[in-house]
Every structure is written in structure tokens, then in C-alpha cells.
Design a protein around this nucleic acid. Structure first.
Length: 258
DNA sequence: ATGTCACAGTCCCTGTGA
């Protein structure tokens, strides 16, 4: 099973690239963030023509998350059931695995109310995962807007006092991992930065000024099935790229422990 | 630190968010 997570920064603007990327890589399941479109604009038909069922939690101008699947899609849930008007979380079961696509709030600045919202949001995610059905394997992926360690940041000195690297944010990720989840990329590549996001400004991509903030977490039952992890840097190049690159994980589900 | 991109509305520029 080939899985990817990708913040596309507007599925409306990115659709031509997303479509050709699907044809090239043939992922089984894709976790999408920042569709920035309503359900009415979501390309359900074009995805179906490519063999993908899809579920969307759309909002409109901002946010929006989705799941594409070639291996079936059911039991869709949207949000945490708490009336949050921001569309940042969707779950679905695909090919016997429970998937969640997350668009964690940016936070903006440490003294901004949006930062408190970010920490509250991560705590709600932790609570949901703590209470999950442990009999079904789970993959939690998305744009977490947190670089888990200094290895995930091109220059920690630049980010002193900024969001994405603060200790409370990193502690929130560790609390999520403590529910029994493994950072898939780090488990296979403990020493490579593996950045997934580069600012559009200042030629950041070509200067290597990146962060690893797009993560795939897998539960213990899937840990032994992981066969590959890689960042599709080519998707960050060329005409009209997203500022995020897709992060892939591959699994051999026949290796699941009984 | 800020050389960009995408959105909506004030609609061919500006404010907002990232």
C-alpha cells in the first residue's frame, strides 16, 4: 500500500498538478490538506475517472481536508464533533486501515490567540487518538505545522521565539506519539532532515531553507509493515507548485503481526 | 529576514493568511 500526505495550497489552483501526480505515482491513499474550496467545487468526478473514491471536509476560502482512495473508502468522519467552524480534520477507513488527514492550525505567533487554538487542537487530536479502536490499524498524516526536533529545521537559530519549533508544540506531538504512534519518516531515516515545506519567498527551496512539518504517524501494528518513506521533491519544482512537497509511506500489509 | 502565492472583494489593486 502506497500512502501520501500533501498540503496542496488550494486544490482549485493545484488540480492540474495533482492530477498528473496521481497518474505518475499511483498512490493507493492520499491525505490532502488546504483544499480551499467548498464541497460543490471539489473534483469528485475527475477523481472517480482516475479510480479514486474521495471524501472532503470543505470550508471555502480557507482550510479544507480530504482523503482520496483506490482501495475503498467508508466510515467518514469530519472534525472532532465540537462545532469548530474550521475544516481541519477528516477520517475514513480505506483497505482495512483507518486514515486521518490533519491540517493543524498555523499558530501565527507565540502570543497570538491562534497559537492557543493550535495547542488546544493538538490536545483534541491526542484525546481522539487515545480513545481510538486499537483493533484497526491507523495512519495519521498531514500538515502538523510543527517541526518535531531541530533536525527538522534548516536553521534553528532563525526560529528562536517563533511558532513551529516551540517546546509546547513539540510536547503536543510527543503526547500524540505516546498514544502508540511512530513517526514513519524518522523511523526509517533517523538522520536525514527530509524537509517537506519551503517558503515561496526568498528562493527558499533552492537555498535549502526548509522544514519537516508534514508527517505520517503509524500505529504499532503497522510499524513492522513499513517498507519505504520518501519526500517527492520534484512536486515542489516547476510551474505553480504548492509550497509543500508530498510525503510518501509504503507498507507491506502482509507483514502485519497476528 | 522576507525576493511569493492564493483568496475574496473594494475587482486589475488591496488586505489577509500562510
Amino acid at each position: 500500500m502506497r500512502v501520501a500526505t500533501w498540503n496542496v495550497n488550494s486544490l482549485t489552483a493545484r488540480w492540474p498538478r495533482v492530477e498528473s501526480w496521481l497518474l505518475e505515482h499511483q498512490p493507493d491513499v492520499v491525505l490532502i490538506q488546504e483544499t480551499k474550496q467548498t464541497d460543490a467545487k471539489f473534483p469528485f468526478e475527475a477523481l472517480a475517472e482516475r479510480g479514486y473514491a474521495a471524501a472532503h471536509h470543505g470550508q471555502g476560502q480557507w482550510n479544507g481536508v480530504a482523503i482520496f482512495s483506490k482501495v475503498g473508502l467508508g466510515d467518514v468522519t469530519r472534525g472532532f464533533g465540537d462545532e469548530d467552524p474550521e475544516a481541519r480534520f477528516i477520517g475514513a477507513t480505506c483497505g482495512g486501515v483507518r486514515f486521518y488527514s490533519c491540517y493543524v492550525p498555523n499558530g501565527r505567533a507565540l502570543d497570538d490567540p491562534h497559537y492557543a487554538y493550535k495547542l488546544q487542537w493538538l490536545a483534541k487530536l491526542r484525546d481522539l487518538l487515545e480513545q481510538r479502536d486499537r483493533s484497526t490499524p491507523v495512519v495519521v498524516g498531514g500538515d502538523f505545522n510543527v517541526a518535531p526536533t531541530d533536525l527538522d529545521c534548516y536553521d534553528p537559530a532563525v526560529f528562536v521565539g517563533a511558532t513551529h519549533v516551540s517546546e509546547p508544540e513539540r510536547a503536543a506531538l510527543r503526547a500524540i506519539e505516546a498514544t502508540g504512534l511512530v513517526d514513519l519518516t524518522r523511523s526509517l531515516h533517523p538522520d536525514e532532515p527530509s524537509f517537506s515545506w519551503w517558503d515561496y519567498r526568498n528562493g527558499a527551496f533552492h537555498r535549502g531553507w526548509g522544514l519537516r512539518i508534514d508527517l505520517l504517524y503509524v500505529d504499532e501494528s503497522l510499524r513492522a509493515t513499513v517498507t519505504a518513506s520518501y519526500v517527492d521533491r520534484d512536486a515542489r519544482k516547476g510551474e505553480k507548485p504548492s509550497d509543500h512537497a508530498p510525503v510518501f509511506g509504503e507498507f507491506d500489509l502482509t507483514k502485519r503481526p497476528n
